[in-house]
Amino acid sequence: MEPIIRVENISKTFQANNGQVEAVKNISFSIEKGDIFGIIGLSGAGKSTLVRCLNLLEKQSEGNIYIDGKNLMKLSSKELRKQRQDIGMIFQHFNLLMQRNVVDNICFPLEIAGVGRKQAKKRALELLETVGLTEKARAYPAQLSGGQKQRVAIARVLANNPKILLCDEATSALDPQTTKSILNLLKEINQKYGITIVVITHEMAVVREICSKVAVLDHGRLVEEGTVEALFGAPKTEEAKQLILNTYA
C-alpha cells in the first residue's frame, strides 16, 4: 500500500547573511496511514523546517514529497490550498486568532473551505465537545490557559476532517500534566478518526508516550529511524543514545 506521506531525498538550503545554511540534508522516509510518527531532535536539528515541507509552507530546495501518492511540487497553487485542508497543523504557540472568540476560531478553517456560517457554527460546537471545552465557546483566547488554547487549536484543525495532522512542538509550551492530557487527546483523535499524526518534538517522553515510529534528526540529517521500542531498547547511533540519556538525566 502507498504510504500516506513519502519524503524522497529532500534538502532545504536557506540563504543567510553569512552564506548558505543547509537546514535539511537529503532526507527520505515514509509514514504509513494511521501511524503516529515522531520526529525528534535537538533545537536547530531541522525538525521544524522538515515538517513545514510536508505542507509546503517551506519549499524544499531539492527532492519530492508525496501525500497520498500526489507529488506536492506538481500541484498548482489552488490545488495546493485544497490539499492543505487535508493536512492540519498545530503549533507550539497555538496561533489562534486573538480577536476572535473560541467558536469563531474554529469556524475559521471552515470559512476558508467555503462552508456556510450556520453549518460552520454547528460543526464548531460539536468539535468543542470533542475537545471538552463546550463551556468556553464564547471566551477569547486571551482568557484561556495554554492547554485550553491548544485544545481550541486541535478543534480548529479537525474542522475540515484532515487526513494528516502535523504537530510542531505542540506540547513544548505546556506543563507536564497538561502535556499528558493533550497527548491523550491526540491519541484519541488518531484512534477515533484514523488521522495520521506527525509529531515534531525535542522531548523523548512525548515520543515514548504516543508515537509508534520515530525518526531521529541531527544537524539536518536523519540519523536513525524505526519503531519506538527499537529506538529505546537498542539505539544504534550516538545521537539517539544521547537524546535518550538527556531525557533521564
Binding site: N55, L57, R81, M89, L97, M98, Q99, N160
Partner: peptide, 25 residues
Amino acid sequence: KGVIEAAQSMGAGTFTIIYKVLLGE
C-alpha cells in the same frame, strides 16, 4: 507571523489572509 502561518496551513489564499487575518487581527 504564527497566526498567518496557521492560516496558510489551513489553505487560506492571499486575499483571505489580508481580509480575515491581517485586517482582523
